[in-house]
Simulated scan of single mutants.
Amino acid sequence: MRRYLALFLPFLPTERWRSPQGGVAPDEVSPFALVERKNNAHRLYALNSAALDQGLAPGLTLADARARLPQLRVADADRRADRELLLSLAAHCELYTPLTALDEPHGLALDVTGCAHLFGGEAGLLALVGKNLAALGFSARAALASTPDGARALARFSSGGVFSPDEAAEAVARLPLAALEVEDEILLALSRAGLKTIGDLASRPSRAFAARFGADFPRKIERLLGREDLRLTPLRPPPDCMVERHFA
């Protein structure tokens, strides 16, 4: 049975700016946002926790945000720098497993099959990864499950933790429909039908969903529930297996 560790860094862009390299002094109290030009307007791309607590959200125009919160501090977003940072964090995570991959946006996926015992078990591994990321200045939520899709959903839409296959299926079933990470139109259609959680979808025939939303939709549900393992592609390909035998 394979085991996957998903890491979600929800404040990675703003925490990059808060780092010494970013040039902005660490300040959790002051609302801070990164902006980018989109649809002929400057819009919020990423926010720190203080800005989120004030009711701001990504996608809001800068003019609206400033009207609501005049003291908002802003800087230009840099998606390339965010990705380079994520790549460096993926390299850092090779301390725990050679099989690491990007899980964008702002996440990492690690295949930790057979590795956890080196770090005091799965709970010990989770604690160590969180501690080391915090020491680097990044907050993260982590979930460990038997499929990468299930681990991702639990890291992004729950408080995370270590989940056995049965526990992961039960926890994913309780997640909101947003864990599907599909278009807003699909979420609206599902909510209008009275469906609220992943478990509500799992209890319905998959044919109806396939006919309405495409053949991939039921497979997405299966992967979230841990019934299908779609292996991740690591950034560093695993080495070829080589066997040597010496004769006299």
Rank of each mutant, 00 (worst) to 15 (best):
L99M: 10
R16N: 08
A145M: 10
R219K: 10
L5W: 03
E36S: 07
K196L: 07
L5N: 03
E181L: 04
A248R: 02
D229Q: 06
R212P: 00
G114L: 14
R231G: 06
S19F: 08
A77H: 09
T61R: 04
L201P: 03
A151P: 09
S158V: 07
L187T: 14
R18K: 11
D78I: 05
K38H: 12
W17Y: 03
L187M: 14
L180E: 08
T100K: 00
R66H: 06
L224F: 06
E94V: 00
D78F: 04
A65C: 00
R68N: 12
G23N: 07
G124T: 10
P10V: 03
L195V: 00
L34M: 04
R212N: 02
T233E: 15
A211L: 15
G161W: 10
P10S: 06
R236Y: 06
L7K: 13
P176W: 04
A109P: 01
M1L: 12
A142D: 07
Q71L: 13
L7F: 09
A202L: 00
E183D: 10
L85V: 05
A57D: 09
D149S: 15
I198T: 02
G214T: 08
G161Y: 12
K131S: 08
G59K: 13
G161S: 13
A51F: 00
A77D: 03
A215E: 15
C241I: 12
E185F: 14
V74L: 08
N40R: 12
L201K: 01
A189S: 06
S191I: 01
A193V: 01
V243R: 15
L62P: 02
P237L: 09
H246D: 09
S159W: 11
G199L: 05
A145G: 14
L133M: 12
K220T: 10
E15V: 14
D111K: 03
A51C: 01
A248Y: 03
L85W: 06
S30E: 13
A169H: 10
P148T: 11
P205V: 03
L52S: 12
T14M: 06
D240H: 11
G137R: 01
A101L: 07
C241N: 08
P234F: 09
A202I: 00
G137A: 04
P176H: 09
L224H: 05
S19I: 05
P31E: 01
A211T: 13
A90V: 12
L144E: 03
R3S: 14
S146P: 01
F163Q: 08
A51E: 00
R83I: 09
S191C: 11
T100E: 01
A151F: 11
Y96W: 15
G199Y: 07
C115N: 14
R68Q: 15
